[in-house]
């Protein structure tokens, strides 16, 4: 019996230009698993993707959904604008670690603070791939990249710890080498009402190949972990500090809680609000 490949109904005409072995392929496959469900329900048109600048950003070319290819660091403000104007849409932001934790860091903290109903997927390879191999905010201390030949003197950002501290309502970590697990995280993140954040560990095969390291150390969070327990989540977050000394790297949902979302708080009220007191106080 001849083996036939199933036709990829989520393919586009864009030629894929990621390097062979790129971690983005795993992420794309996980995203497609979730998009397939949208497609089957005929709801693909209700989804918008926003990307930044970097290798990750090409993902919007490879899936047949509405998308906005924004600039470096500014994925979240664009996604936020889309969501506020059209709260009925599912909005997914993709960013690299340079995008999300470097130039766009302020936006990330504010997205968590405001709790807008968005899903934000960070393609975290701890290196600037598109500019060919420089140090990023999550490169491990001592990382010898093209702009840090002697090794980076800085301690990396731990995005899980940061997002917990910023008040995010859904904080998760995935790994491109665990496809089903990652697809499930994305599914849960979309289902979550509020700002859902996934830091996805992703090797850069060309400039920072971390497959072996992650394969050895990544471990799914035990089902006994109570993701509603903030202290337990923080303890788990601090188990690995994005260094290359790791006993285990927990992946899964660290924390999930419910808080009012921003768009509900700013909705235009049906009745006029009485601002008399405000005017008396602030206007001469």
């Amino acid at each position: 019996m001849p083996i036939t490949k199933e036709k990829d109904l989520l393919a586009t005409y864009a030629e894929n230009t990621w390097c062979p072995g790129c971690g983005n392929f795993g992420l794309l496959a996980a995203v497609k698993k979730v998009l397939k469900e949208f497609r089957e329900k005929n709801e693909l048109h209700r989804l918008v993707m926003v990307s930044g600048i970097g290798c990750h950003a090409k993902i919007v070319d490879y899936v047949p959904v509405n998308s906005f290819y924004s600039i470096h660091g500014r994925v979240l403000p664009v996604a936020w604008g889309i969501k506020l104007a059209h709260p009925e849409l599912t909005v997914i932001g993709h960013a690299g670690d340079g995008d999300a934790y470097g130039e766009g860091l302020a936006h990330l903290i504010f997205a968590a603070k405001r709790n807008t109903d968005l899903t934000f997927i960070v393609h975290n390879n701890s290196v600037y791939g598109l500019t060919t191999g420089q140090f990023t905010p999550t490169s491990p201390k001592g990382f010898k990249g093209r702009s840090t030949p002697k090794g980076s003197p800085e301690t990396p950002i731990n995005p899980i710890e940061l997002l917990l501290a910023s008040g995010a309502t859904f904080v998760a970590r995935g790994y491109v080498g665990k496809l089903e697990h990652l697809a499930n995280l994305i599914r849960e993140a979309i289902r979550h009402r509020g700002f859902a954040f996934i830091d996805v560990l992703q090797p850069c095969y060309t400039f920072f190949n971390t497959y072996e390291f992650y394969n050895q150390h990544v471990k799914e969070i035990s089902p006994e972990h109570d993701s509603r327990d903030f202290s337990a989540a923080m303890e788990l977050a601090l188990k690995w500090s994005y260094s290359f000394e790791a006993e285990e790297i927990p992946i899964g949902i660290f924390y999930q809680t419910e808080k009012p979302v921003y768009e509900d708080a700013v909705i235009v009220p049906e009745k006029k609000v009485d601002l008399g007191e405000h005017f008396r106080h602030y206007h001469l």
């Binding site: 598109l130 500019t131 060919t132 420089q134 702009s147």
Partner: peptide
């Protein structure tokens, strides 16, 4: 880093 400037500062870092 930003293309096409990157090589200048990379070499300076070296």
């Amino acid at each position: 880093p930003i293309t096409p400037q990157t090589h200048i500062v990379e070499h300076l870092s070296e």
